[in-house]
Amino acid sequence: MLDATQDGYTTADGRKIGGVVMEMKNITLRFGGVVAIKDISFDIREGEIRAIIGPNGAGKSSMLNVISGFYVPQEGEVLYKGKPRPQMKPYQVARQGIARTFQNIALFEGMTVLDNVMTGRLNKMKTNMFQQGLWKGAAEREEVENREVVEKVIDFLEIQNIRKTPVARLPYGLKKRVELARALAAEPSLLLLDEPMAGMNVEEKEDMSRFILDVNDEFGTTIALIEHDMGVVMDLSDRVVVMDYGKKIGDGTPDEVRSNQDVIDAYLGVAHD
């Protein structure tokens, strides 16, 4: 059982999990008459891998969009680093240190891998257009500094050999990895992964799982992910939120969730009598 105090807890494998990074309080999200999320509360703690699972149409992606600020819930409150988040545009959310990947890859197809990953650093760039037009001096220095960070990420995700390849030429699995690289390049305090293993074979899934664990381990990045593959989720995550029809039906460690009767019913179906 977790000791979910304000100060965090220690996981089964001995990692220290810190305080609350993001807290969702009684979130309700509607699209017209459709209620996508109904009165859900949970938190994401520093350094943990938090999974959101649920059957199709449960509202997982909507939840991730609420966290990333793309959707604004009608009711409830999103607290980021203890402060209520005002309504803001998606690009402002990114500047707060939240990076994400997409279920359907959202890379910039016309650019090389390197350029794509460099876009992840956009928010760290301080030079103005005139300095960049001159190039020599501040702009070049900044480019090189950020390139060094990006190259670390590229090394880390083992995509060195394709750094100058246009993204459009890459296979699916690699694109997913490049997208993760772009998100990591931003050095986010919260990383959102929308189905990072969708459409992958077993080998690619294993690779991706390893990368996610490594990212969490080496950079201490807080990760929230949505995933369908139960085996993967149970192995990776520290805590799991289970959603069904927009409601939260379970929340806890993988073991707790696995033995939760509501969760079993949602996934395996239940005999109505």
Partner: peptide, 19 residues
């Protein structure tokens, strides 16, 4: 890169922080 990001996929560009 900002321009090309807008060209290739404006929604994704906005989410990674391009105004």
């Amino acid at each position: 890169r900002k321009w090309m990001a807008i060209r290739d996929m404006d929604i994704a560009a906005e989410i990674i922080g391009v105004n």
